[in-house]
Protein backbone atom coordinates (compact mmCIF):
# COMPACT_ATOMS: atom_id res chain seq x y z
CA UNK A 1 0.00 0.00 0.00
CA UNK A 2 1.22 3.50 -0.83
CA UNK A 3 1.14 6.51 1.46
CA UNK A 4 -1.60 9.04 0.76
CA UNK A 5 -0.32 11.49 3.35
CA UNK A 6 3.26 11.96 4.35
CA UNK A 7 4.08 14.73 6.81
CA UNK A 8 7.72 15.36 7.61
CA UNK A 9 8.57 17.68 10.49
CA UNK A 10 5.79 20.14 9.81
CA UNK A 11 6.05 23.45 11.67
CA UNK A 12 3.66 26.34 11.63
CA UNK A 13 4.48 29.74 13.12
CA UNK A 14 2.11 32.69 13.18
CA UNK A 15 3.65 36.13 13.36
CA UNK A 16 1.72 39.04 14.73
CA UNK A 17 4.07 41.99 14.89
CA UNK A 18 6.87 40.97 17.22
CA UNK A 19 4.94 38.15 18.80
CA UNK A 20 5.60 34.71 17.37
CA UNK A 21 3.17 31.90 18.10
CA UNK A 22 4.43 28.42 17.33
CA UNK A 23 1.32 26.34 16.70
CA UNK A 24 2.86 23.19 15.23
CA UNK A 25 6.27 22.17 16.59
CA UNK A 26 7.28 19.49 14.11
CA UNK A 27 4.68 16.91 13.18
CA UNK A 28 5.70 13.73 11.41
CA UNK A 29 3.31 10.94 10.43
CA UNK A 30 1.94 9.18 7.39
CA UNK A 31 -1.41 7.73 6.36
CA UNK A 32 -1.75 4.78 4.01
CA UNK A 33 -4.40 4.39 1.37
CA UNK A 34 -7.63 2.95 2.78
CA UNK A 35 -6.92 3.94 6.38
CA UNK A 36 -9.47 5.53 8.72
CA UNK A 37 -7.49 7.87 10.98
CA UNK A 38 -8.75 10.16 13.73
CA UNK A 39 -6.69 13.17 14.76
CA UNK A 40 -7.66 14.06 18.29
CA UNK A 41 -6.80 16.88 20.58
CA UNK A 42 -8.36 19.56 22.79
CA UNK A 43 -8.98 23.02 21.46
CA UNK A 44 -5.76 25.00 21.19
CA UNK A 45 -3.75 21.87 20.52
CA UNK A 46 -3.13 22.84 16.91
CA UNK A 47 -5.43 20.27 15.36
CA UNK A 48 -7.35 22.92 13.38
CA UNK A 49 -4.12 24.24 11.92
CA UNK A 50 -3.13 20.65 11.17
CA UNK A 51 -6.46 20.14 9.41
CA UNK A 52 -5.93 23.31 7.29
CA UNK A 53 -2.52 22.11 6.20
CA UNK A 54 -3.73 18.56 5.51
CA UNK A 55 -6.64 20.05 3.54
CA UNK A 56 -4.29 22.18 1.40
CA UNK A 57 -6.06 25.29 2.67
CA UNK A 58 -2.82 26.54 4.19
CA UNK A 59 0.88 25.86 3.83
CA UNK A 60 3.32 24.98 6.63
CA UNK A 61 6.08 27.40 7.65
CA UNK A 62 8.61 24.60 7.25
CA UNK A 63 8.62 20.89 6.65
CA UNK A 64 7.33 18.73 3.84
CA UNK A 65 3.81 17.61 3.11
CA UNK A 66 3.40 15.00 0.39
CA UNK A 67 -0.18 14.41 -0.65
CA UNK A 68 -0.50 11.44 -2.98
CA UNK A 69 3.22 11.77 -3.75
CA UNK A 70 3.12 15.51 -4.48
CA UNK A 71 4.91 17.99 -2.27
CA UNK A 72 2.40 20.77 -1.77
CA UNK A 73 4.16 22.60 1.06
CA UNK A 74 5.21 25.58 -1.04
CA UNK A 75 2.40 25.84 -3.59
CA UNK A 76 0.56 29.00 -4.63
CA UNK A 77 -3.12 29.61 -3.84
CA UNK A 78 -4.33 28.59 -7.29
CA UNK A 79 -2.17 25.43 -7.29
CA UNK A 80 -3.62 24.54 -3.88
CA UNK A 81 -7.13 25.03 -5.33
CA UNK A 82 -6.23 22.53 -8.01
CA UNK A 83 -5.01 20.04 -5.37
CA UNK A 84 -8.21 20.47 -3.31
CA UNK A 85 -10.29 19.96 -6.41
CA UNK A 86 -8.44 16.78 -7.42
CA UNK A 87 -7.48 15.07 -4.19
CA UNK A 88 -9.48 16.21 -1.18
CA UNK A 89 -13.10 15.83 -0.16
CA UNK A 90 -14.13 18.13 2.69
CA UNK A 91 -16.77 17.57 5.36
CA UNK A 92 -17.17 20.57 7.68
CA UNK A 93 -18.69 20.90 11.13
CA UNK A 94 -21.19 23.50 9.87
CA UNK A 95 -22.03 21.42 6.76
CA UNK A 96 -21.42 24.46 4.53
CA UNK A 97 -24.03 23.75 1.90
CA UNK A 98 -25.25 26.37 -0.55
CA UNK A 99 -28.68 27.50 0.60
CA UNK A 100 -31.30 28.03 -2.13
CA UNK A 101 -29.76 25.20 -4.10
CA UNK A 102 -31.05 21.65 -4.40
CA UNK A 103 -29.32 18.68 -2.81
CA UNK A 104 -28.26 17.48 -6.23
CA UNK A 105 -26.76 20.83 -7.19
CA UNK A 106 -24.89 21.03 -3.89
CA UNK A 107 -23.36 17.61 -4.40
CA UNK A 108 -22.39 18.41 -7.99
CA UNK A 109 -20.85 21.81 -7.05
CA UNK A 110 -17.13 20.81 -7.02
CA UNK A 111 -17.48 19.29 -10.48
CA UNK A 112 -18.44 22.69 -11.90
CA UNK A 113 -14.90 23.83 -11.22
CA UNK A 114 -13.50 20.66 -12.76
CA UNK A 115 -15.34 21.57 -15.97
CA UNK A 116 -17.51 18.43 -16.02
CA UNK A 117 -20.60 18.83 -18.24
CA UNK A 118 -23.96 19.11 -16.49
CA UNK A 119 -25.43 15.71 -17.42
CA UNK A 120 -22.24 13.92 -16.32
CA UNK A 121 -22.14 15.97 -13.11
CA UNK A 122 -25.62 14.92 -12.17
CA UNK A 123 -24.93 11.28 -12.94
CA UNK A 124 -21.88 11.29 -10.64
CA UNK A 125 -23.75 13.22 -7.95
CA UNK A 126 -26.59 10.71 -7.97
CA UNK A 127 -24.10 7.87 -7.65
CA UNK A 128 -22.40 9.52 -4.66
CA UNK A 129 -25.73 10.22 -2.96
CA UNK A 130 -26.55 6.54 -3.34
CA UNK A 131 -23.13 5.56 -1.90
CA UNK A 132 -23.69 7.71 1.18
CA UNK A 133 -27.18 6.18 1.56
CA UNK A 134 -29.04 9.43 1.10
CA UNK A 135 -32.78 8.84 0.49
CA UNK A 136 -33.73 9.50 -3.09
CA UNK A 137 -36.95 11.40 -2.38
CA UNK A 138 -34.94 14.36 -1.01
CA UNK A 139 -32.59 14.75 -3.96
CA UNK A 140 -34.48 17.71 -5.35
CA UNK A 141 -35.18 19.40 -2.01
CA UNK A 142 -33.46 22.65 -1.22
CA UNK A 143 -30.56 22.16 1.15
CA UNK A 144 -32.08 24.46 3.79
CA UNK A 145 -35.28 22.41 3.89
CA UNK A 146 -33.70 19.24 5.30
CA UNK A 147 -32.52 18.26 8.77
CA UNK A 148 -28.97 18.65 10.07
CA UNK A 149 -28.22 14.93 9.81
CA UNK A 150 -29.40 14.93 6.21
CA UNK A 151 -27.34 18.04 5.49
CA UNK A 152 -24.18 16.37 6.74
CA UNK A 153 -24.84 13.37 4.52
CA UNK A 154 -25.26 15.72 1.56
CA UNK A 155 -21.87 17.16 2.52
CA UNK A 156 -20.41 13.65 2.65
CA UNK A 157 -21.82 12.87 -0.79
CA UNK A 158 -20.30 16.14 -2.02
CA UNK A 159 -16.91 15.14 -0.62
CA UNK A 160 -17.02 11.95 -2.69
CA UNK A 161 -18.01 13.53 -5.96
CA UNK A 162 -14.51 14.35 -7.24
CA UNK A 163 -13.24 10.86 -6.35
CA UNK A 164 -10.66 12.27 -3.90
CA UNK A 165 -7.56 10.61 -2.51
CA UNK A 166 -8.86 11.27 0.97
CA UNK A 167 -11.88 12.58 2.80
CA UNK A 168 -11.04 15.19 5.41
CA UNK A 169 -13.77 15.57 8.04
CA UNK A 170 -13.51 18.43 10.53
CA UNK A 171 -15.70 17.76 13.61
CA UNK A 172 -18.41 16.25 11.38
CA UNK A 173 -20.67 15.43 14.33
CA UNK A 174 -20.06 18.65 16.24
CA UNK A 175 -23.36 20.25 15.25
CA UNK A 176 -25.45 17.09 15.45
CA UNK A 177 -27.27 15.27 18.22
CA UNK A 178 -25.95 11.84 19.22
CA UNK A 179 -28.46 9.89 17.09
CA UNK A 180 -27.74 11.69 13.83
CA UNK A 181 -24.04 11.84 14.74
CA UNK A 182 -24.12 8.08 14.90
CA UNK A 183 -25.62 7.87 11.41
CA UNK A 184 -22.89 10.13 10.04
CA UNK A 185 -20.19 8.04 11.70
CA UNK A 186 -21.79 4.94 10.27
CA UNK A 187 -21.67 6.50 6.81
CA UNK A 188 -17.94 7.14 7.22
CA UNK A 189 -17.31 3.61 8.41
CA UNK A 190 -19.17 2.04 5.52
CA UNK A 191 -17.39 4.30 3.01
CA UNK A 192 -14.11 3.15 4.54
CA UNK A 193 -14.90 -0.53 4.82
CA UNK A 194 -17.09 -1.10 1.77
CA UNK A 195 -15.64 1.44 -0.68
CA UNK A 196 -12.07 1.56 0.59
CA UNK A 197 -12.01 5.35 1.04
CA UNK A 198 -9.18 6.96 3.02
CA UNK A 199 -10.68 9.06 5.80
CA UNK A 200 -9.02 11.55 8.14
CA UNK A 201 -11.32 12.67 10.93
CA UNK A 202 -10.50 15.64 13.16
CA UNK A 203 -12.27 15.74 16.52
CA UNK A 204 -11.88 16.64 20.15
CA UNK A 205 -14.26 13.90 21.36
CA UNK A 206 -12.68 10.59 22.18
CA UNK A 207 -16.05 8.86 21.63
CA UNK A 208 -16.05 10.01 18.01
CA UNK A 209 -12.35 9.23 17.53
CA UNK A 210 -12.92 5.67 18.72
CA UNK A 211 -14.82 4.93 15.49
CA UNK A 212 -11.53 5.12 13.57
CA UNK A 213 -8.90 2.41 13.10
CA UNK A 214 -6.03 4.58 14.27
CA UNK A 215 -5.93 7.55 16.64
CA UNK A 216 -3.31 10.32 16.62
CA UNK A 217 -3.31 12.49 19.76
CA UNK A 218 -2.06 16.03 19.37
CA UNK A 219 -1.23 18.27 22.30
CA UNK A 220 0.49 21.68 22.23
CA UNK A 221 1.49 21.28 18.61
CA UNK A 222 3.15 17.91 19.03
CA UNK A 223 2.09 14.32 18.54
CA UNK A 224 1.44 12.80 21.95
CA UNK A 225 0.61 9.32 20.74
CA UNK A 226 -0.07 7.53 17.46
CA UNK A 227 -1.52 4.06 17.89
CA UNK A 228 -4.01 1.61 16.46
CA UNK A 229 -7.44 1.75 18.07
CA UNK A 230 -7.88 -1.52 19.98
CA UNK A 231 -11.50 -0.85 20.90
CA UNK A 232 -13.02 0.27 17.62
CA UNK A 233 -16.66 1.28 17.99
CA UNK A 234 -18.99 0.23 15.23
CA UNK A 235 -21.66 2.82 14.58
CA UNK A 236 -25.01 1.16 14.21
CA UNK A 237 -27.63 2.83 12.14
CA UNK A 238 -30.10 0.02 11.35
CA UNK A 239 -31.74 0.44 14.74
CA UNK A 240 -32.01 4.19 14.33
CA UNK A 241 -34.37 6.00 12.01
CA UNK A 242 -32.97 8.59 9.63
CA UNK A 243 -34.06 12.20 10.29
Amino acid sequence: MSNIIECRNIKKVYRNGDIETVVLKGITFSVEEGEFVAIMGPSGSGKSTMMHILGALDTPTSGEYLLDGKNIAQMSQDELSEIRLDKIGFVFQAFNLLPRATVLRNVALPLIYAGVPKAERERIAEQCLTESAFPKEFWNHYSNQISGGMMQRVAIARSLVNNPSMILADEPTGNLDSVTGEIVLHTFQSLNVEHGKTIVLITHESYVAEHADRIIHILDGQILSDEMNQHKRIAGHETQPIK
Binding site: Q77, D78, S81, D86, F90, L109, P110, Y113
Partner: peptide, 9 residues
Protein backbone atom coordinates in the same frame (compact mmCIF):
# COMPACT_ATOMS: atom_id res chain seq x y z
CA UNK B 1 -16.68 27.08 0.54
CA UNK B 2 -16.30 27.45 -3.23
CA UNK B 3 -12.59 28.07 -2.84
CA UNK B 4 -12.22 25.11 -0.48
CA UNK B 5 -13.98 22.92 -3.02
CA UNK B 6 -11.48 23.90 -5.68
CA UNK B 7 -12.61 27.20 -7.23
CA UNK B 8 -9.66 29.23 -8.48
CA UNK B 9 -9.35 33.00 -8.10
Amino acid sequence: LRKALGAKE
